[in-house]
Simulated assay, not measured.
Amino acid sequence: MNRSRRVALLFAAVVTFGGLSACEPSQLGAAAIVEDQRITVSEIQGYLDQVRDQRKEYGLPTQLDRDAARVEVERRVLNLVFERAAQQMNIRVTEAEIEKTRAAETRSADEIAELAAQNNVTADSLDEVYRRFTIERLISEAIEQQLPNAGEVQLNEEFARRLVAVAESLRIKVNPRYGTFDPKVGQVIATQWDFLKAPKG
């Protein structure tokens, strides 16, 4: 597996591999729930406010794409999927490994900050980004060690298979406001509303 596969390009497209009932009072305010961990609507809205402020600082349009909230929910759900995958593979994500990922980035801090703003990544969430890419790299390296004779295609397929298996094993529910999580592709798919169908609840 070549280095470009193991170390994801910073801020590149997110690696990809039933919804909440709108009337469940115990889960009101949840953008998504992964096992027993809630990602709240207020967290998503607060994050997007930070994104707008950061974009303004760099002279970028503050009007976000209509999918910005869905993409942020997806990012947070996938972070938890990757964390669980690392746990199941007994992978320890140390500060030294995260620093190794940072060191692989050749762009300056100013360039990274501006690129982050362009991609709706706040300065405060950069540590999460590097941790996620570190987990991806460590999983890829572990698979390569387990399958030393495998080619690039087989290694990529095995990587995807394991992430899909983890995603399918988790109880992941997404508020229909943002879409539904498809574990086979690792994405929150935007809801296609049927306005002729009466809502439940």
Rank of each mutant, 00 (worst) to 15 (best):
R3H: 15
R5M: 14
R5N: 15
L10V: 09
L10W: 00
A12W: 11
V14K: 14
V14I: 12
V14D: 11
V15I: 13
V15S: 12
G18P: 11
A22I: 05
P25F: 00
P25L: 02
V34Q: 01
V34N: 00
Q37M: 09
R38Q: 06
S42Y: 01
S42P: 00
G46R: 02
G46M: 04
G46F: 01
Y47Q: 00
D49G: 03
D49I: 04
R52M: 07
D53T: 11
L60F: 13
L64K: 08
D65H: 14
R70G: 03
V71N: 11
V71E: 14
V73S: 04
V73R: 01
L78D: 03
N79S: 09
N79I: 04
E83Y: 07
R84D: 09
Q87A: 10
Q87Y: 07
N90Q: 08
I91V: 08
R92Q: 08
T94L: 09
E99T: 08
K100Q: 10
R102T: 05
T106N: 11
S108N: 07
A109T: 15
A109F: 11
D110H: 06
I112D: 05
E114V: 13
L115Y: 08
Q118N: 10
N120R: 09
N120K: 05
D124S: 10
L126S: 02
D127W: 06
D127K: 09
D127P: 06
E128C: 04
V129A: 05
Y130T: 02
Y130S: 03
R132M: 10
R132E: 10
I135D: 01
E136K: 14
R137G: 04
R137F: 07
L138H: 06
I139K: 05
S140C: 15
Q145L: 13
L147S: 12
N149L: 13
N149E: 14
N149V: 06
G151D: 15
L155S: 13
L155R: 14
E158K: 15
F159R: 11
F159L: 13
A160W: 01
A160T: 12
R161C: 09
R161Q: 14
L163M: 13
V164C: 07
A165F: 02
A165I: 04
E168I: 02
S169Y: 01
S169R: 04
L170W: 02
V174Y: 00
V174K: 00
V174R: 01
N175I: 01
N175C: 04
P176S: 04
G179A: 05
T180P: 00
T180L: 06
D182F: 09
P183M: 10
K184M: 10
K184E: 12
Q187T: 13
Q187C: 10
Q187M: 14
V188G: 01
V188R: 01
I189A: 09
A190V: 11
A190W: 06
T191V: 07
D194V: 03
D194R: 07
D194F: 03
L196N: 10
A198F: 06
A198V: 10
P199E: 06
G201N: 07
G201D: 04
